[in-house]
Amino acid sequence: MIARFDYHVPASLDEACALKKEYGNTGIVVAGGSDVYAKMHLGDHLYDHVIDIKKIEDMQGIRWSETEGLSLGAAVTHHEIERHPVIKERYDVLVQGVRTIGSLQVRNRGTIGGNICTAAPSADGIGPLLVLDASCVIHGLGGERTVPLKDFFTGPKQTVLADDEVLVRVTVPTPAPSYGGAYFKYGRRNAMEIALLGISVYLEVADDGKTCSAMRIALGTSAPIPIRAQKTEAYYIGKDLSDRQVVEAASSIILEDASPRNSWRADGEFRRSLLKLLVPRTVRTAYGALTRE
C-alpha cells in the first residue's frame, strides 16, 4: 500500500523545476510511474511529494526531420516509440531495446525520460540511445543545456541533473543511410524481465561492405552505470566484419571495458562468460542487419 503523499501536476517546465527544487529529497519526479509507484507500493514511506510531469507540453511528442534528426519528449511512452513508423525504419535498434521493457501494459505507461532518469544500469532504453549518440536536453530554473547521454550518468542511479533540473527531450542524430544495429537482452524470462545483460551495437562499414568504419557498443548491467565499450569499439575499427574469427576475437578485450558484478540475480563470472560470447554475437547480428542501398 502506498503511503500518503501530495500530488503535484505542474503545467510548465519552470513550475516543475521549482517544485523539484523546493521538495528536494522529499519529492520525486514521476511520469509513467512504472519505476516510482512500483517502489512506493512496497509500503515504506519514501516521498512526501510526487511531481507528475506528464502534462507538460514541452515533454510531449516525437519529432523528426532528416536534417534535425529525432527528438523524443521525455514523457513519450515506450509503446509510442515502438510503433512510430520513422523510428521503426531508421532507428530500429531503439525499437529493439524498448520493446523488451516489461510488458505491453508497462510500455504503455513507462516513458523514455523515466527510463533514463531512473538511471538503472539495466535500462533497455538507454543502451540503444547511447550507440545512436543521443543527447539530453535539460531544463533548469537558470535555463537550458544539452548533455551527451554518455555523460549523463554520474554513478549508480545518479545523473547530472541538478536539484532544479528536469530532462525535457532526448535528441538523436540521423544515423548513416547504411548502418547495422542490434540490441541483445539476456534475461531469464522473455517478458517482464530486468536485463542481466544488455548489449547494443551500432556499426557502419566502408564501401567494400565489410571493413568496419564506425562501431559503437553500449553495455547494460555490466558496470555501475550504462557504459560504452570503448576499447572493444576501437578494436573493431578497420576490421573485416565478415570474418567470424575476427569478430569473435573481441571476446578477449571486452572485459577491459566491462566489470559485471556478483549479485543474487546472477553470478559475476557467469555474466563475464556471457559477455565474451554475446558481444561478438550481437556485432554479427548488427552486421547481418546492415541496411544496404
Binding site: R189, A191, M192, W264, R265
Partner: peptide, 21 residues
C-alpha cells in the same frame, strides 16, 4: 535467500512463466 532474508519476493524477480515463455 541470503542469511534467511528473501531477495526476490516479488513478481519481477520471482519468475513464473509469462505467455512469452
Amino acid at each position: 535467500h541470503r542469511d534467511g532474508y528473501l531477495m526476490n519476493g516479488n513478481m519481477v524477480d520471482f519468475k513464473i512463466p509469462t505467455s512469452m515463455d
